[in-house]
């Protein structure tokens, strides 16, 4: 049996929970088996009730009140507590065969890059429970409007990727908002989705201090080496957009096993063209 774990990551307000809900809705509508796992103790509300919820194990409100922690300390404590009680997670997750789990992850970057908790959790799922992992990193599409913001976002995504060391998909979320933005044309949008690093260098040099041009070149080289420049567009409210993203996750995790990969559906004529 193939067991897939998709970890939906991203900074606060990047649209993770909305995307998780949209993915659940789509998979249910096409008859696929899937479950939502909430690993954010500070999560606020859900469109879909999670099948597994860390708040059943421990709640950040309890931690903050009883131990007098702030939001950050409380969150890290919750995860350390989870790592000490992985039997609970095994029991919660282990009952589902042929499983497709969507993990809604917290937004704190520390958990990915500075505290060795989530990487250990992912390895636990890989080794002990035989899941095939895939990281789905959401970056808000408004960052395209500013070139240097885009660089910062890419570096942030790469920072998380380095620690997690699993197949990695980058999404530009909230693309429906960007389509209404007159400051960026569809041609420019395509260039960001399939970026030529040299073009990036030229464009970012226009808006940065000349003394940073060499650093710009080095970063573009770094980005290019790790194929971090490719992003997928995402509109959580658009069913075709969600289905396309899902097909990429299936490819990354080899959900089809020996089957040929499913061809992604083409967007409507007025949507973004697929240049790949």
């Amino acid at each position: 049996m193939v067991k897939v774990a998709a970890f939906v990551c991203g900074v606060a307000s990047s649209g993770k929970s909305t995307f998780c809900g949209a993915l659940m809705s789509y998979m249910k509508s096409v008859g696929r088996s899937c479950h939502l796992v909430n690993l954010d103790p500070a999560a606020e509300n859900f469109e879909w009730e999670p099948t597994v919820d860390i708040r059943d194990l421990i709640s950040i409100d309890d931690v903050m009140e009883e131990l007098d922690y702030g939001p950050n300390g409380g969150l890290i404590y919750c995860f350390e507590f989870l790592m000490e009680n992985l039997d609970w997670l095994n029991e919660e997750i282990g009952d589902y065969d042929e499983d497709y789990l969507i993990f809604d992850m917290p937004g704190q970057i520390e958990l990915y890059t500075h505290v060795p908790i989530l990487p250990a959790l992912i390895r636990h799922l890989q080794v002990t429970l035989n899941f095939r992992p895939c990281a789905v990193y959401l970056l808000e599409s408004q960052f395209l409007v500013d070139r240097t913001k885009f660089f910062a976002g890419v570096l942030s995504a790469m920072s998380a990727m380095v620690m997690m060391e699993v197949p990695h998909i980058n999404l530009l979320s909230k693309m429906d908002l960007l389509k209404d933005n007159n400051n960026i044309t569809k041609a420019e949008l395509k260039r960001f989705l399939n970026t030529d690093p040299l073009l990036l260098t030229g464009e970012i040099n226009e808006t940065t201090n000349p003394k940073f041009h060499e650093l710009n070149r080095c970063i573009v080289q770094l980005i290019d080496d790790f194929n971090m420049v490719n992003f997928l567009p995402l509109e959580s409210g658009n069913e075709e957009s969600v289905s396309r993203v899902l097909s990429y996750i299936d490819d990354a995790t080899q959900w089809y096993e020996d089957q040929e990969p499913k061809d992604p559906d083409r967007f409507e004529a007025d949507d973004l063209e697929d240049d790949e």
């Binding site: 970057i109 990915y112 890059t113 500075h114 660089f151 910062a152 976002g153 570096l155 942030s156 790469m158 920072s159 998380a160 380095v162 620690m163 970063i219």
Partner: peptide, 10 residues
């Protein structure tokens, strides 16, 4: 490495 990448991002 993650720290340095994040600092560069900043």
């Amino acid at each position: 490495m993650s720290s340095m990448l994040y600092a560069c991002s900043m």
